[in-house]
Design a protein around this nucleic acid. Structure first.
Lengths: 343, 343
DNA sequence: ACGGTTTCCGAAACCGTTTTTGGAGAGATG
DNA sequence: CATCTCTCCAAAAACGGTTTCGGAAACCGT
């Protein structure tokens, strides 16, 4: 039978008290070098592994960051490639600092009583901080969570709380740059397909579009803005409508690469070729963007950077840094590939 | 100051002992209904949240599943869309059973001493089980982990251990079906671009290709098999070579959708059109497969199903079920779209 | 009225750590 | 030699739960 080797066992074998073992292992000053040496050697011989539960029980810190990211059927956000890359960035960043990520999945946490709530689940596991990715900011659970005492960072969602911070790309500037790029190419009839307009990125990108249109002295036409949901299918339908217009656009700014891809597809189905007959620019620069046909001109979000920034925010707030901004926005970069050309 | 409400507080306020509170909350039999009622009401009024650490310390069960999934620079596996969807399936399945997912990220777990090792990290957090996704099965750390006492499930990797189970798609059958489909369309010169041949899916798909070629009475030609790495770029190069052959293939089976997309791109760059001049079939059916141009004919892996099967394995083994298969393979399904046609 | 069951609950041990407190011994100081 | 300061460590009290054990009261049949 494999008996777990505890700190007590270490103490017994090395002839000191458990307190001393703990101090030796944790690098406290007041333990004689040779004693420490002996203990550490023994620990590695026996492959001693401290129990996180015991430690966090007393220190009240778990070195774990909770992650809320819905995988629901309705909005399969966990399936949006964008969020995964952000998650990867977060993982890397907080990993360096010794944190692990707890991806909340359980429906009745703690194996039993009481309904689940975000706050409760976070408290139950004593996470040191929480990352909220692509959630509905109006959800009452979410609001309760950020109103609590746990440091939170929200990615791509508008949220306020005493100890929470928001990280997102500069969506407005990016959208504006997209239409300027199109305009520079010579396009004058530029349409857009928005993301969900109840999300912050959705409205910001729309605003960027609108501002740029006006700054460039183009007429803002209602029929040129169509509402999508960040996924391909919605853009395909939207593009159909757009192309059926009496005066169809020569260029489309889609507020997500997935939607840009949907738009390209709709164009192909309408017998149009991209970019010869229609220019399309996306947003995100997902992994596949350079590989689709034609390669997508898009605005690159620094996905790893977003995750890393979220990690930064979390570790800083966990460390007790009070001087934190409420919002951190990262620049996006236009990368032009093959889906845009002069009209 | 927000004092955490503990079970002792509950006991004090409701005038019973802590043991009774515990039993009441956990649904044990020997507590009078009205007492239980009173306690539970109080608990929900005070929003009592049990501490997972304390509980798992004594029960030796954490209700947490550890997930190892590398985000390294070298092989950015966390970036392969396939794995995310699998993760989603796993999350859903184990979530129903009350488990959460711990995504290992920390580089020096426990905040300090000793080098990290998979086994050590798993033990440190007392995870009830581990999921290994897309790792190198020859890694010595991985082998140590599966030799241990913790139930493990490996997804898409060949691995053996006393308490570990493997879940993967029926790659061989899928590959065979791909070439039969191509053959049925009239193709006779069918090439393949493999995945990494040090991975089980890589070799299985190659074997499936080879077997089908022979069963159909086609000549097996060495120059028709090119080695890729599951990502787009490698397939693009491989396709260039293939098309430069004196007798170029009329169809390509790419062992991954990302590679199929790379192949399509290479064809376009060579002035060929898919599927008119070249048929391409992929593998995976990633989310984007129906949306690229042309829509990809591919073999659908049941990604959610793989995750769910992994979850099944884990919960069963955690519950102590000894009657478990060592390997579980899931069927794949040919879905024909626009990237294949008669030659 | 009495032994035997049941039902309900309190007391206490325990899980594996950290951290505080204090004290023994050694060396320095007066 | 007495005292004072170090240095190093032991003991014990937490942290917040679960679970075992046993006892008091209530209920039962005779």
């Amino acid at each position: 039978m494999e008996e777990r080797v505890t700190i007590r066992e270490l103490a017994r074998r090395s002839g000191v008290s458990v307190g001393t073992v703990s101090r030796a292992l944790n690098g406290y000053a007041d333990v004689r070098p040779e004693t420490r040496e002996r203990i550490m050697r023994l620990a590695s011989e026996l492959d001693y592994t401290p129990a996180a539960a015991a430690r966090s029980l007393v220190t009240q810190r778990s070195h774990v960051i909770g992650v809320f990211m819905e995988t629901g059927e309705g909005h399969p956000d966990l399936q949006h490639p964008f969020f995964h890359e952000v998650l990867g960035g977060l993982k890397q960043r907080v990993g360096r600092e010794g944190f692990d990520l707890l991806l909340f999945a359980s429906e009745r946490p703690g194996g039993g009583y009481g309904p689940h709530s975000y706050l409760k689940r976070a408290r139950h596991h004593s996470v040191d901080g929480c990352a909220l990715i692509g959630l509905d900011p109006d959800d009452s659970e979410v609001r309760r969570l950020v109103r609590g005492e746990i440091p939170c960072v929200a990615i791509d969602m508008q949220l306020e709380g005493p100890n929470t911070e928001v990280v997102m790309s500069d969506n407005e500037a990016g959208a504006a740059e997209a239409v300027r790029h199109l305009h520079g190419l010579g396009h004058r009839r530029i349409a857009t397909i928005t993301g969900m307009i109840d999300s912050r990125p959705g409205v910001d990108r729309l605003r960027g579009y609108r501002n740029a249109i006006q700054e460039l002295g183009l007429a803002y036409r209602d029929e040129y803005v169509r509402y999508g949901d960040f996924y391909a299918e919605s853009a395909r339908e939207a593009t159909e409508k757009l192309l059926a217009l009496p005066e169809p656009p020569t260029a489309i700014f889609a507020a997500a690469d997935l939607m840009a891809i949907g738009a390209v597809r709709a164009a192909a189905e309408a017998g149009l070729s991209v970019p010869a007959d229609l220019s399309v620019v996306g947003f995100d620069d997902i992994q596949l963007a350079p590989h689709v046909n034609p390669p997508l001109t898009t605005l690159r979000q620094d996905k790893l950077g977003l995750g890393a920034a979220a990690g930064d925010a979390l570790v800083a707030r966990i460390a007790g840094d009070p001087e934190r901004p409420q919002l951190r926005t990262l620049p996006v970069e236009l990368v032009v590939r093959g889906s845009t050309a002069a009209p």
